[in-house]
Design a protein around this nucleic acid. Structure first.
Length: 213
DNA sequence: TGTCCGATTGGT
DNA sequence: CCAATCGGACAG
């Protein structure tokens, strides 16, 4: 095997919508004592900083929780939500520009058995259900609060270059669970691969078509 | 310290 | 549609 290609700091240091688009097709990898797990990124959401009402950094809000959003791009922003789930973001933009990309779904490519175990699912569980939705991504990948701030350019938790997804397959829609953001809730800043069955339920999977022809 | 609420999920 | 479940944000 050859060494997998990685992204550069500069790649992540762009605006979050641009990075979000470029990350579809990337690969999230996590090496732990339990083993390696990895998945193709098929669904993301861009959170665009202080002007974005849906962002944790809206209005320049800066707390212990979202502090890493203000740091260098390419690091993880992991937070705990609803008393149950973790969500992982990739910090983007320049230092002091608090933007991020939320990883909402992966298409599993490695460590499927480990993912099933972490999810508490049987061996028959379909691959496309393992990392469907941001909470499930973290559960299946073994990502927790201690992974907040990790440098995703290298290390146990990282993002590698994967496949190039054609623009024609990219679906852009409103972000999920941000109704509190008023007008901003409708902006098309959720991007996903319309050809993937691994996208979250909210994105159109689990029933009818995905919106792609 | 007290209260409110969430970038979710899974089942009804 | 709704409950689960608890850390974070903020008012006092």
């Amino acid at each position: 095997m050859t060494t997998p290609a990685t992204y550069t700091r500069r790649f992540f240091a762009r605006d979050s919508l641009t990075v979000a688009r470029a990350l579809v097709g990337g690969v999230l990898v996590h090496e732990t004592r339990a083993g390696v797990s990895a998945g193709l990124i098929v669904e993301v959401e861009a959170y665009r900083g202080p002007s974005d009402r849906a962002a944790h950094s809206y209005g320049g809000r800066r707390t212990a929780r979202n502090e890493v959003m203000y740091g260098a791009a390419g690091h993880s922003y992991v937070y705990f939500i609803y008393g149950i789930h973790y969500c992982i973001n990739v910090v983007t933009g320049a230092v002091d520009v608090p933007e991020a990309v939320l990883i909402r779904a992966l298409e599993p490519v490695d460590g499927l058995a480990l993912m099933r175990r972490r999810r508490g699912l049987g061996k028959e569980a379909p691959a496309h259900l393992l990392c469907r939705g941001p909470g499930n991504v973290c559960r299946a990948m073994g990502i927790q609060g201690r992974d907040n701030g990790a440098d995703l350019l290298c290390g146990a938790l990282r993002i590698e270059r994967g496949r190039r997804v054609p623009e024609a397959r990219i679906v852009r829609a409103a972000r999920i669970g941000v109704d509190y953001a008023g007008d901003h809730a409708a902006l098309p800043w959720r991007l996903y691969d319309g050809a993937s069955r691994s996208v979250s339920r909210a994105a159109g999977a689990g029933g009818r078509g995905s919106g792609l022809g």
